[in-house]
Each structure stands twice: as structure tokens, then as C-alpha cells.
Nucleic acid binder design. Sequence first.
DNA 1: TCGATTCGAACCGCCACAGTAACGG
DNA 2: TCCCGTTACTGTGGCGGTTCGAATC
Length: 405
Amino acid sequence: MGYLCDFCGDQRSLVYCRSDSACLCLSCDRNVHSANALSRRHSRTLVCERCNSQPAFVRSVEEKISLCQNCDWLGHGTSPSSSMHKRQSINCYSGCPSAAEFSSIWSFFLDIPSLGEACEQELGLMSINENIPPEGQNVSGSTEVTDLPSKGKSWAGTPSIPESSSEPRILDQPPGPANECVPKLYCPGKKASGICEDDDLYDDFIMDEVDLELENYEELFGMALSHSEELFENGGINSLFEAKDMSASAGDSHCQGAVAAEGSSAGLVNPIQPACSNAASADSVMSTKTEPIVCFTARQSQSNISFSGVTKDSAGDYQDCGASSMLLMGEPPWCPPCPESSLHSANRSNAVMRYKEKKKTRKFEKKVRYASRKARADVRKRVKGRFVKAGDVYDYDPLNQTRSY
DNA sequence: TCGATTCGAACCGCCACAGTAACGG
DNA sequence: TCCCGTTACTGTGGCGGTTCGAATC
């Protein structure tokens, strides 16, 4: 028996919403996330059936159980026999999928009795059409599952499931340090396991597109940017990762991969328990309003990389930045060195040039969060730009453009 | 070394907002 | 005594124009 829904407290929670950091039953999931366009964009996934508190990112085929990264690590990463279990990545979805759409997102959907039954009862009559937001927002993993964006565009826009959603990837590699290609990235649009073989992904990488997606790019990456640019330009990121025998265990963070700031120069890596690298940490990252901080962690020979500094407001917009940021750094760090690297370096140089040009012309527009406060501030009387108490003498009145004395 | 330029932080008062405490039924 | 809903209170942060110091050229 799992934990109860955080919303109704009655039904068993089946779905984990990262944006809300909440475990919900299907009914509440639909109710909550059909409220408005923003909530529809919340990316959700199954709840780990072991700890019942973290978002599941992988499903054990043998055990028929959905696991978060931490539980997967604990369950599969330590035992040689269990580590051979085949596992499927669990895709995220947004919107309000129907039962059929769930099935298309998760092929194992019907293997989950509680989920299947609940969905049949609660969502079975739903039509995808009635859930499609008016502004073209769709239900990820349903409509897009048959009309997937090209890999070059897969980072863009609202959360969507990876291309192979209808055919979940089999993860033959055991988890943990030895597994360098485990597609743990929940991030939509990520080319998961195939990324190692697919150089086209990198070749198709267009810096401008990333730029468009990450308008607050520097805000997002904060101080890591300057350093990462150097690495980018020098191709140093590859050698950095290679030298450390690092692999990117992609999935734990929304925004991982484009790292290499702290600890990169001196190899200062902070050993952190696997729990730190699970999706919860990613959520905490997203929900934490902090100065941009790059958290660079390593576990044995495996690195778990995460970003901080993403405001809660922007979290949803940058949920898919993982793949993008990863590519920003050049080749995926888990990609072994290949003879074509010289070609990549040329592409990298071009990409850097395009990025810098774009950076020059980028406009950082301030986003007003409270229009009422702006309206009030606009009419406030000031002295040398500073607000003054009501009734005090002022030298500037926005309304009258006059002086009080 | 100095002047010019650029950039970003700080400042101010008001008040919306969120969280907590107190209160009554 | 406990629970629940309402009200009161408190702390925090955002808003914009100007200034000023640091950094850069």
C-alpha cells in the first residue's frame, strides 16, 4: 500500500508532480493539472513504488516496479544479480492524458494494476481533445508521441516525452558507476540511450536554438557560464570529463551536464550520497531561490551533476534545459572520444561564435511579477529617485512632473 | 596615471502577500 | 479539551528612478 495523495489524502498516490513536489492520485492529478495552462505544463511521472516519495525514473521489467533513482541504485546498483535486471526508462508527461495515452506513454501501463484500474475508472472516458488547451498546448506523450519533434527541436517548448516514448528503452547496463549511458534524464526531448551512437544529435545542435530556449541563459547558468565558455571554446570539457573518468548520470537533474565550474579546475568534487542525486534533489534545485550555484558532485567514478540557481518561477521553462545545457558544453561527456572530434571542434567553434553574437544582442527584459506594485511605484513621489513618505517634500512627481518646492 | 565610460548595487516608502497567532463557536 | 474557521498581526519582498562606486577602456 502506498502513501496517500497529497491533495485529497484519500486515494493512493500514483503520480509525482515535480513542479508541485506532490504525490497525487490520478483523479487529483487531473483536477489539479487541468486548472489552467500553466498547471497543464507541469511535468509528472510515476511515483516510486518503493519509497513512495520520489518520482520514478525507471521501471524494473523483472520486478514490475517503478523506481526512483535512489531506490534503483539501492536495489540494482549494489547486487550483481539484480543489476542485470532490465529496466525501462519512465517518461514524463504533461497535460491530462487519457488511459490510452498513458498506455502509449508507458508500455507497461497496464502492468500496473492500481494505475490501470484507477485510470480506467477516472480517466478512461476522457478524450484527448477535451484536454487540449486552447493555445495549442498539448498533452505530452500523447499527441506528440505520434508526431515527435525532430531531435534538433526536441528541447523546445512545453514538456514532452522523449521520442522513444512508445517504445521505452531497455536499459541493459547495470546502474551505478559502470553505467555511463543510462538515460536517467527525465528531461523531455532528450535523446537518451541512443545519444552515444548518434553523433547527428551533436551535429544538428544549433546554438541559436538553445539561445532561444534559454533566454535567461546567464541567469540560469550563473557564474558557471564564464568558466564553461572557456571549456567550451577549448574543448576542455571533454578532456575534463575523460580525465576524471566521469560519466553523466543524466537523469537526476533538469539542468545537468553543462557544468564543470566548481571543482573542475582542481578536481574538487564533493562526494555526495546517491540520494543527493535523485530527482528530489533536482526538485529542490528547482524550488530553491538562490544565487546561481553550480553543484558538482561525484560518486566514486560517477558524477552527478546538478544546477542550482533556477528560480521557481522559471523552473518550468527550463525543465528541458538538461539536454540543451549538456550540448552547450560540446560533446556529451559520456560520449567516448571519437575520431570525428576534430570536426566537432570546428562545429563547436562555430557554435561558440554564434552564441557570442547572440549574446551581444540579447535583451534582458525585466519581468514584473506584480503589476499592482509596478503601478504604485510608477506614481510614487521621489527624491533623487528614492521613494519618499507620503506628505514629504519631493522633487519628482511622475504624475505631474513637478517639484514640491 | 588620469579621465571617460559602462555597469551594477543600493537606496527609499508603501503595500501585497504569505505565514503565524489568537480568538470564538 | 479538541477541532475548525475566521480574524488579526507580523515579516518579507517587490516596485522604479536616481545615485554612486567599482571596473574597464
